[in-house]
Design a binder for these strands. Structure first.
Lengths: 233, 233
DNA sequence: CCGGGTGTGTGTCCGCCGTCACAATCCGGG
DNA sequence: CCCGGATTGTGACGGCGGACACACACCCGG
């Protein structure tokens, strides 16, 4: 049941915590592995634990009442999630689903609350993090305002890509077309077609479980309307 | 320059604050009136004050790079806004624009920060409020997943409507079609057409500067897909 | 009482993209 | 190593909603 201290130290939320507190947290935490497509948090539940992602990738998703899937955000390793219910005690606002095999550590609500509100500095770290999330969500909302699906796909790809030390730009844990589609409000087929064009132009290349972004300029140009949205020639 | 204490007491964020602190805040605050369409907060600025809305209505908006307007949220009286920059010191994430003549009270950043982080109870109130905003934003994002514009308009109207004491359901400060259009990612014309049908069916009625919602059931049914999206007969 | 700006109403038209239907691959687990 | 489900690829079609172009209605201020 307890989680090794070494692991706790990798969570930025807990940086600088005194050893005794860490030890106590370690006691109360537990780890679990989720297979791809498994549900980590179920919308509407009251389970209210705070969760940390060790490795893998998760996606926050919701469903419109007519059953259409909507992608809200991705969670990457060393980040935490599920804070909202810890804070306000309301039911889980959305589903969180593993899009890759993932290891998750959970901390029960009572313990998480004392951590948040009775530990010097953590409260400020938490609000800062909530603020960042709000900024991300409204950036995502703005992205959805782009008129053409192709633009939205490119913008989303630009958002997901990471510049490595060697100057390579890469998207790790290559998301499926479907996962992208629900993030940018379009159909899976449209995403596939956009990918076809991007790969034909050498902008994007599949490489095992990641995408190589050969021409990140192009992605940004399309996203920001400087270049016309690509269409099949 | 100072703002009357009576006004401060109407802000729920400040409830229960000791009189001396309230007095101090009152000294440092200032009030300003904004005309319709005036910009209250400009995206990218570093002005970083915390703002309270006394009366009127504001809308958070952003623009896609190709100039398309995107509506993010509405602000109603006695609520506060502009917290993000106060918290993280980053530039303003979006525009906030008055959609009706509005009175706004502002508090400089340094004062707002001490209020937030060194005043018992306020920090928790603040995170709870950030949590609510996150929930609202993802609800709005889910709304955008609805396939038909008509559904989205109905869902948005349902969201905006308020049930009065007498059982009447009403939307105050009737938003313009344009304001709704940018919230639900559609064109102004489409909103107009949906309104036509809704009014023809007696679901909605204009009454001065508010909308009477005669049949809120219908709005919810359409929003949730139980009834077909209305179209001109 | 007039005038202009802002909001609303409506027609037409075209292109795009969502949907459906299938084929072709890929991939992981037994 | 093989099988089955998940993922990707592609064609055809049809409808719907965005863009454009006006007309009109409304409201406030001068």
């Amino acid at each position: 049941m307890p989680v090794p201290l070494a692991i706790l130290q990798s969570f930025s939320l807990l940086h600088g915590l005194p050893a005794d507190k860490l030890a106590r947290l370690s006691e109360r935490m537990s780890e679990r592995t989720f297979a791809r497509r498994e549900v980590v948090i179920k919308k509407g539940e009251h389970g209210n634990a705070l969760c940390f992602l060790l490795e893998g990738r998760l996606q926050g998703v919701d469903f419109t009442v007519d059953g259409r899937e909507v992608g809200l955000y991705f969670v990457d390793p060393n980040d935490y999630f599920g804070e909202l219910s810890v804070i306000d005690g309301q039911p889980r606002p959305e589903f969180v689903i593993a899009v890759a095999r993932s290891r998750v550590v959970t901390l029960p609500r009572d313990e998480a609350r004392t951590l948040m509100f009775s530990t010097a500095g953590i409260a400020e770290r938490l609000t800062t993090r909530l603020a960042r999330r709000l900024r991300l969500e409204s950036a995502q909302r703005t992205l959805l305002g782009l008129p053409s699906p192709a633009q939205r796909v490119c913008a989303q790809l630009a958002q997901l890509s990471v510049r490595l030390a060697q100057g390579k730009v890469v998207i790790a844990h290559a998301p499926t077309h479907q996962e992208i589609a629900i993030m940018v409000n379009t159909s899976r087929e449209t995403v596939t077609r956009v990918f076809q064009v991007l790969q034909a132009r050498g902008v994007l290349k599949r490489d095992g479980d990641q995408f190589q972004v050969e021409d990140s300029r192009y992605l940004n140009d399309v996203a920001e309307g400087r270049t016309d949205p690509p269409k099949a020639t």
